[in-house]
């Protein structure tokens, strides 16, 4: 994916020069190993900062919400699906954006990699299929495939579903993945076991709301957790309030979540809150045959009624 950089710069430069867009949103190199920072360029010169590697996991669609400029945006498969969802939900106009598609081979999981080494990681160098991790007293080369973010390892839409430009030819999609083993494991638990499982999962939560804010779907002017008249959910560290926040946040993503992994990636205490959204994703697929963000012209199942919608739950 490293070879994309020149092409990204070239396309961005052209779009800015020709005045097709006012800004291009991409990534610049971060100040820590395995981190890049979302960044914008408003002039052809500014695109020089752009980079692309396996640390571009933040969902850039988050930066499109309600913007009024003409924008060029880099989009992996998942970002592109969220852009489609944004278009469906009127958060951005199709003709306002130029989508620069990036075929994605998956982003690496920096938490997982950090946990593999006792010391601090000083440098991470990557090539096409491997990454080399260096630190004081250690150096190891790992197969990128083994340290992908879980959502990337299970991804079946690596190529952008919608694009105006492409930085490279489309890559082969994964077909032999079982996306829902973890969800099925939880489904198999008894109600009490589920409750205990989620309690344990959410116990470290500090309510920083990074998961909510990293999510391109969470754009409400005022989130229900921030409503004060009436106040729907307590603000303390009570586990019931914490769980309420997580459950409701997940519900709001039903039929919209593309499993881009931004929520899990952003969590400072390593909670995998994707187990909630994945359950809803699985239900949408099984009940309505729906995958979010594939086509801007199809209304999502939760805002349409069809006579054939499943209704077995009504006695």
């Amino acid at each position: 994916m490293l070879s994309y950089i020149d092409k990204i710069k070239e396309i961005s430069k052209r779009l800015l020069k020709e005045g097709q867009v006012d800004m291009v949103i991409g990534f610049r190199k971060g100040t820590l190993p395995m981190m890049n920072e979302p960044h914008f360029a408003r002039s052809p010169e500014a695109v020089e900062h752009f980079v692309w590697d396996s640390n571009c996991g933040i969902n850039l669609c988050n930066y499109l919400t309600s913007r009024t400029e003409k924008i060029g945006i880099l989009a992996k498969g998942c970002d592109s699906r969220n852009i489609v969802t944004h278009i469906i939900e009127n958060k951005i106009k199709r003709d306002q954006i130029v989508i620069i598609g990036v075929p994605c081979k998956g982003m690496i999981d920096r938490r997982k990699i950090s946990a593999m080494f006792a010391g601090e990681i000083g440098e991470v160098i990557e090539d096409d299929n491997t990454i080399t991790v260096k630190g004081k007293g250690f150096e190891k080369t790992i197969d990128k495939k083994d340290v992908l973010q879980q959502n990337c390892a299970l991804c079946i839409h690596r190529n952008p579903v919608i694009h105006d430009e492409m930085v490279a030819d489309a890559i082969e999609e994964q077909t032999d993945v079982d996306r829902y083993t973890d969800v099925r494991e939880i489904e198999a638990l008894s109600p009490q076991e589920k409750a205990t499982y989620f309690e344990k999962l959410l116990e470290p939560c500090i309510r920083c709301y990074a998961c909510r804010n990293a999510c391109p779907l969470c754009y409400c002017p005022t989130c229900f957790t921030d409503e004060s008249r009436p106040q729907w959910v307590g603000k303390g560290q009570d586990l019931t309030d914490v769980s309420t926040f997580h459950f409701l946040r997940a519900y709001h993503c039903a039929g919209r979540c593309t499993d881009c992994g931004a929520c899990e990636r952003s969590c400072p205490v390593g909670i995998n809150m994707r187990v909630f959204t994945k359950k809803l994703e699985k239900d949408c697929l099984e009940l309505f045959g729906w995958e979010a963000g594939l086509d801007p012209d199809v209304r999502p199942p939760l805002d349409t009624y069809k006579p054939g919608d499943p209704d077995d739950f009504i006695k």
């Binding site: 939880i186 109600p191 589920k194 409750a195 205990t196 989620f198 459950f247 006695k315």
Partner: peptide, 12 residues
């Protein structure tokens, strides 16, 4: 899925 027993919520 949240750990509420299925029979607690019924639709008719």
């Amino acid at each position: 899925h949240m750990g509420i027993e299925p029979d607690r919520l019924q639709f008719s």
